[in-house]
Amino acid sequence: MILRAEKTVKEFMRENRQAGTNCFCAVQETDLTLESGTLTVVTGRSGSGKSTLLNMLCGLSQPTRGRVLLEDADIYALSDAALSRLRNEKFGVIPQGQTALHSLTVIENALLPFYLYHESPDISYAEELLEMLGIAALRNVKPAELSGGELRRMSIARALVRKPPFIFADEPTGDLDDENTQAVFRFLREAADRGAAAMVVTHEQGIEKYADRLFRMDAGVLHEA
């Protein structure tokens, strides 16, 4: 499967007391293709626009101009319900920061994508993911009792539980130590090797060895490294 950003641009209106409202271009005209079996890495400084690009590709933020095409169909032409369903089935997203639902246990958090659409959860695969991520023993624990690294691994399990063809990870190692960082990158590499198209946005060094394609984002402009 192919997901393609085609001349996508994202602009925000910014309020400024002195200068009034002005337009800020977070992502300038960008083309990017994500293909099955590849791990695409976008690096860059904070505020360079890499998270905005990821959000446009995963259906969370509509481009100001341009299109995002899944097998030649513009995902932003879909209704909110259809795009949401698409995100649920095809896109596994690991958002920035801590994103656990505190009223649910680790396993319930991991199975959330199934619960949203009242589908029978694939419990054995969720348990397998927790095992692979080293948090199987914590399956019935509430997020409040987990460390930052454990929470991050839980959100990875949640993103992968539906075996989505596209995986998006926004700073997946933001608050992890070196050992955990390498483990997460390896895990994403393995997911790509199993056939997923993975896109990782990070400012972490040392990921190059895992990437099939490496990009650098600078002031909203994407350069292939």
Partner: peptide, 16 residues
């Protein structure tokens, strides 16, 4: 709000 945003990321529609 962040929890609801996570639900949205997981595929919840605005209606949900």
């Amino acid at each position: 709000k962040k929890e609801f945003a996570v639900l949205r990321v997981m595929g919840a529609s605005r209606r949900m």
